[in-house]
Amino acid sequence: MFEARLVQSAILKKVLDAIKDLLTEATFECSDSGIQVQAMDNAHVSLVSLNLRSDGFDKYRCDRNLSMGMSIASMTKILRCAGAEDTVTLRAVDNPENIMFIFESPNKEKLAEYEMKLINMDQEHLGIIKTKETSYSCVVKMPSQEFSRICRDLSQFGESITFACSKEGIKFSASGDFGQATVKLAQTADADKEEEAVLVTMQEPVKLTFSCRYLNCFVKAGPLCAQVQLSMSNDVPLVCEYKIGDIGHIRYYLAPKIDD
């Protein structure tokens, strides 16, 4: 038996918004410690790693480990049926063929149940990728809205954005047929609010180029968290991380563009 309950179904809606443009289907690994998803986009350029800890749920029970293949489009359709204030419960039996989504209104007068068929995921199981969080040359924390804005604005100039990070701050630049654009963000000296701060932790400067298309998918996670964390080292994938309240995080890994 698997059962996971979240008082705020809005969190799950936002999580789906954050992955639906990158993934068509994904395996949800459920265990005693929580729910984990790791999946690459079709082009194998980016990897999405989603973690929802069991202690972050309002109720969580997982008697045996389950791997459930789910269509992200179908899941999105079902989550659209949840009211903004509804509670959501995910429920499956052991060896399930279906998963149940149960939405309950705050006054408990409306109870809606949706059943979704699981998919047999033929694709090779990824295993869980471990990364060393401390080994990045630059780690930047900045307002997620600002990051979304910069990706959107610079996407108008070309297909990719170059991130250059030094101890002064981070510089984003793009160029194309009609011109070029540069946005520099300095480290904030004293931000009034923590969520408005720009913080740079640098071991050595980095300069990396990334595809706008993927960055603009990642920023869909913006509503999950006021701050985004960008971890970078030269010649390795960017890690773009959004915390999901007290329950977990979503991390996107994006392969850089390399010189021919």
């Binding site: 990824l126 180029t209 994938p237 890994y253 994006l254 390399i258 021919d260």
Partner: peptide
């Protein structure tokens, strides 16, 4: 000129 690398190249997928 830059080309898009694949993420597989960076992770040993089990």
């Amino acid at each position: 000129k830059k080309t898009q690398n694949k993420i597989d190249a960076y992770f040993k997928l089990q």
